[in-house]
Design a protein around this nucleic acid. Structure first.
Lengths: 137, 137
DNA sequence: ATAATATATGAGTATAAACGAATATAATCA
DNA sequence: TGATTATATTCGTTTATACTCATATATTAT
């Protein structure tokens, strides 16, 4: 892994959004999907790319895969830390994502709830809302 | 210009090589081409891209266009400075380019000489060599 | 064992990026 | 003025990237 490859791994908005979330602590794939409003396969692919560049690492627990920042890599490439700590916060998009994450955590809902109850984020007011299970789900 | 766009501008090896050279001071396009061994149109395009991202700026003097780092942008995005100051030097490719630049400057040849005499860099020993003008050039 | 769920991956498509060759433009020199 | 030179740009091609939909895999729950 050389410098250009690391920078390329950072040069995508969705991947920066993922790193922005994971800066607050580990998350499983379905949490990332839901908070960012992206498809499952898209989330998986971006997570894979960041892992390949060693910017992320993961561990499996039950049926979930938890991703988190690879601290060794952040130490080695201090400019990544600089971006995460000082640049992301300057743009509204990333601040809004953090707000969604905060509300999700505040709700005390689990990843299971997210899927079972089809929890979504209302794009207008950023609030969590829950569609209860019904026969057609 | 937002964060992703700046990072994308940095996510190419040739552009990093250009920035690496310009860290040592301004250069005109033909000097960059020759030292990096890339085509004129390629050099021009990458310089344009870096200028569009405000990482570079330029001024014209006679028939030449001189490019240099935009210090305001480097102050604003300190991670760029971090990359230029601490990361490039770690990889052989960029160190070799700096050595070519040093030899070029040591030779006291001008940009005019570079072109008129078809100065090239021998890729094996990194030395400058000069093909004298002749009727077939 | 079977069904359900979380995640990864394959296939196809659309878009972006990088490049070389040729041409256009603008400045200089003879 | 006409030729030369430095740089930018256009065009066509190739490769890389991002995305969706569908399917595969693996784990859990019943």
């Amino acid at each position: 892994m050389n410098l250009v490859q690391v920078i390329k791994a950072l040069s995508d908005e969705t991947r920066l959004r993922i790193l922005n979330l994971l800066r607050q602590g580990e998350l499983c794939v379905c949490e990332i999907e839901t908070i960012l409003g992206i498809t499952q396969s898209n989330a998986s692919r971006h997570l894979n790319r960041l892992t390949y560049a060693r910017i992320l690492e993961f561990y499996k627990k039950a049926q979930y895969v938890y991703y988190k920042l690879n601290e060794d890599t952040l130490k080695r490439y201090s400019f990544i830390k600089e971006i995460l700590d000082n640049e992301l916060i300057r743009e509204e998009l990333y601040r809004a994502d953090l707000e969604k994450l905060r509300r999700y955590r505040e709700s005390k809902l689990s990843c299971d709830d997210l899927r079972r109850n089809k929890v979504c984020f209302d794009e207008e007011n950023q609030n969590l809302f829950i569609e209860q299970d019904n026969a057609y789900n």
